[in-house]
Design a protein around this nucleic acid. Structure first.
Length: 792
DNA sequence: AAACGAAGCTTTTTT
DNA sequence: AGCTTCGTTT
């Protein structure tokens, strides 16, 4: 997705050629538009650059089917443009068409266009769609996330911020590890100051483009007893020492480079003739500054956003950016897209009424751009259920019903507020055998074994990678304890050399006990040997060799825990994935930024994801569970930022509803177990804010519907008023309304053959209530809940 | 040095 | 509850 190799320290005039598996293309200068015949562009004129823009035929395919506003957004090429684009109004269509239009008009070459998205997924989608319109020229666009584009730029100027061109990008895990080390060095009590919290503060500083020396006054924080800025500086120093940077640094360093060297800034300002920005409402200060700097010369910047979908203020996003656009870019043209082509009128009506409860919006009216047969249009439904289990049961039953009517599972999604909510649905889906996929769950590259393996590869690719060294030097166990590692650290710090080099020197001394010395010597020479193979051996093969010879694979093969076989599988997958890349370095770079599950073979599955993760997606059917006070709106959002927090939660609800094309089901439970404590829940205020004319409310027997029309009488009748008073107190799980005891429950007896989704087949050894002890054929003996197994 | 057990924290959202 | 982290034991 990005290009990976460019000589450091040289200002290239255009991006380096794209990597491996993309077919080689003619040099842009000799043949700027290597287009298929099918692509309706005229041949390049002799004076392509700087010449008059070419007229674009009005019947160009990307202009087909655009409404007047969309058309304006696409064709207003000169000068700043702000597109206020409500949910489902065709924003991606506009962005892609605009790119095609720019290229067709010859106002810029592909590599002079910068298009920024927030997620890799959005970037990929946009690239595919643009490629569909303009062909392979799409490959030459600067199209990606802020982070990947910054990385690409920063690689060329790394030395200006004290990094080598081959610096590594740390993921969240490594970041925290480094920060913990810094804190330990400074004798900061990790209990009084949770590293996570300090990390968060530092990141917020970075989001605001504040380097350590700029943190003061209003931005100061009292974390770590006011030593935050100092620790921030030490953390940054430490990163430089490791020749590494974190996500926030990608932007921060790029800004630093721009501001430190006018020549560099001018170069890039001149380079990018057109800027397109997706999800503008979610840009933070650093990103905003970055954009504003880059847009100065040509001033052709087009930002697309929706203030009602701003849901990332917690990570530094400033809705204000969208509100002040025309101050920063005087004369900006503002285009509103208000025709929704996604959802039914009921869904639109419900969502619009909900979001209308927010103050301080730019204000848009979404109208339906679709025609619906009135009888096929369902109202948004809300339903009160007894507890989380009933909720999961209801949702899964509903899924099965809809599926039986002929709709696909992949047209349905369960959108939760927070990750922990997924569990109950997963359990239910497993017991009923409905295929599902958790999106944004534990990612492939975040798994323990993958991170270990990657550390091996990193260490071999760049021997100075101290974090990688630490991670694998005693994994698998080589008998190197804390004392030995400590010695390496001391020597490294003393001599000012990387850990691996320090280790090499250390084994030549008598510092270590013979045993440890031998182990370390073995490790050092192993790494040296693998390194010597770097150029001669294909990298995938090399990776396999490393994992074998280090004993890492053997370690998992010997591990008896049930997930060990899976880990070995994952390692194989990792090696296989490597083959897709040109080199080890390209691969490592890719992984640093695009930490995604490369979704496997498309199967028909229900998606489960967070509301945040769902932004930009759409489904025929959307399930919105857990609409209860303190869950959604989340208690912490309210506690931390009050009204602002509440409005952001409401926008989140709006995002959730507007994901639905045909139907939405909102559910809320009367009781929920949170941290192992049963709590009585109140329906979310958002439930009540939904307008009756677009909503159909119902409740399980004995529960009230949580709606406006439900009187207090109903409230009192159900006995909830008492509950409300004492809702903070823990109480045993009430179960008056439970129907029959779990059906999947009883029935198992010792000796039964059963199947478990994760552990496979096995025999029941013992039964304890709903807990079964099962001897699995492959995974060993485990205690599992009966709901996870089915009889064979 | 490794293995075991107790204690404490988590869970809001992510590039 | 489940997981990680820390401290203790072998």
């Amino acid at each position: 997705m990005m290009d990976h190799s460019s000589p450091s320290g040289i200002l290239l005039l255009r991006p380096a050629r794209h990597s491996a598996n993309i077919p080689a293309m003619p040099h842009p200068e000799s043949d700027p538009f290597a287009l298929d015949d099918a692509i309706p562009f005229p041949p390049p004129p002799a004076r392509a650059r700087g010449g008059e823009p070419l007229p674009v035929p009005a019947d160009a395919p990307w202009l087909a089917g655009l409404n007047p506003e969309q058309l304006e957004a696409v064709t207003s090429l000169d000068g700043p443009v702000l597109v206020l684009s409500g949910a489902g109004t065709g924003k991606t269509k506009v962005l892609t068409a605009r790119l095609a239009h720019i290229l067709a008009s010859r106002r810029a070459q592909p590599w002079q266009c910068l298009a920024v998205t927030f997620t890799n997924r959005a970037a990929r989608e946009m690239k595919e769609r643009v490629a569909g319109l303009v062909g392979p020229a799409a490959q030459d666009l600067w199209l990606g996330t802020f982070h990947s584009l910054c990385l690409r730029i920063l690689r060329r100027h790394a030395q200006a911020v004290g990094l080598g061109a081959d610096f590594t990008v740390l993921d969240a895990d490594d970041q925290l590890r480094v920060l913990k080390q810094v804190m330990a060095d400074q004798h900061i009590d990790a209990k009084a100051t949770p590293p996570q919290a300090l990390m968060g503060v530092i990141q917020r500083w970075k989001d605001r483009a504040l380097t350590p020396d700029k943190v003061r006054g209003e931005h100061a924080s009292d974390v770590a007893g006011g030593r935050g800025p100092e620790l921030y500086r030490l953390y940054q120093d430490r990163l430089k020492g490791l020749n590494a940077c974190d996500f926030g640094d990608l932007l921060l360093h790029t800004l630093t480079v721009f501001l430190a060297d006018a020549r560099v800034l001018e170069h890039w300002q001149g380079h990018f003739r057109y800027l397109l920005v997706d999800e503008y409402q979610d840009t933070n200060v650093a990103q905003y500054l970055w954009l504003r700097l880059l847009a100065q010369t040509h001033r052709n910047i087009c930002c697309v956003g929706d203030d009602d979908q701003s849901i990332y203020s917690w990570r530094g996003a400033e809705v204000g950016n969208i509100l002040r656009f025309d101050k920063d870019f005087p004369g900006a043209r503002v285009v509103r897209l208000e025709s929704n082509y996604r959802s039914t009128p009921h869904i639109l009506g419900a969502a619009s009424a909900l979001i209308a409860h927010n103050q301080g919006r730019l204000g848009k009216t979404l109208r339906s751009g679709l025609s619906h047969e009135s009888d096929s249009v369902e109202k948004v439904r809300t339903r009160a259920v007894w507890d989380g289990e009933a909720e999961a049961r209801l949702v899964v039953e509903e899924i099965e019903t809809i599926q039986r009517r002929g709709e696909t599972l992949s047209s349905m999604a369960i959108l939760v507020r927070a990750g922990f909510q997924t569990r109950e649905f997963e359990e239910r889906l497993i017991t009923t055998g409905v295929p599902y996929r958790v999106i944004g769950g534990p990612r492939f590259y975040e798994r323990l074994e993958i991170r270990d393996a990657m550390a091996y590869l990193r260490l071999v690719a760049s021997p100075a990678d101290g974090l990688a060294f630490e991670r694998v030097v005693n994994t698998p166990k080589r008998g190197l304890g804390e004392a030995a590692i400590q010695s390496v650290h001391i020597l490294a710090r003393h001599a000012g050399v990387p850990l691996l080099e320090a280790a090499r020197r250390l084994v030549e001394t008598d510092e270590l006990k013979p045993r440890a010395r031998q182990a370390l010597a073995g490790f050092v020479s192993d790494v040296a040997r693998w390194r010597s193979l770097l150029d001669s051996m294909p990298h995938a093969e090399l990776a396999a060799t490393i994992l074998e010879e280090s004993g890492y694979v053997a370690m998992w093969k010997a591990d008896k825990s049930p997930d060990a076989p899976g880990r070995v599988e994952n390692l194989k997958e990792l090696v296989a994935a490597l083959e897709e890349y040109e080199s080890l370095a390209t691969f490592l770079e890719h992984v640093a930024l695009v930490m995604e599950n490369d979704a496997k073979a498309e199967q028909d599955r229900v998606a489960i994801m967070t509301l945040h993760g769902a932004k930009g997606l759409e489904f025929d059917t959307v399930f919105l569970p857990g609409w209860e006070e303190e869950v959604f709106p989340h208690a912490r959002a309210l506690a931390e930022t009050g009204t602002q927090g509440l409005e952001e939660e409401r926008r989140l609800a709006y995002v959730g509803l507007t994901r639905a094309r045909k139907r939405a089901l909102v559910t809320f439970a009367a009781n929920r177990r949170i941290y192992n404590q049963w709590k009585s829940q109140l329906p979310s205020r958002f439930v009540e804010e939904l307008p009756d004319e677009h909503v159909e409310r119902s409740a399980d027997r004995g529960l009230h519907g949580g709606g406006r029309q439900d009187s207090n009488a109903a409230w009192n009748e159900s006995g909830w008023s008492d509950v409300r008073r004492s809702r903070q107190t823990a109480r045993p799980a009430p179960a008056p309304l439970k129907t029959a005891p779990r059906q999947s429950g009883g029935g198992f007896r010792a000796g039964d053959r059963v199947f478990h989704d994760k552990f496979g087949n096995g025999s029941v050894v013992a039964v304890d209530g709903n807990k079964l002890e099962i001897a699995f054929d492959k995974a060993g003996t485990k205690k599992v809940l009966d709901s996870f197994v089915s009889a064979l």
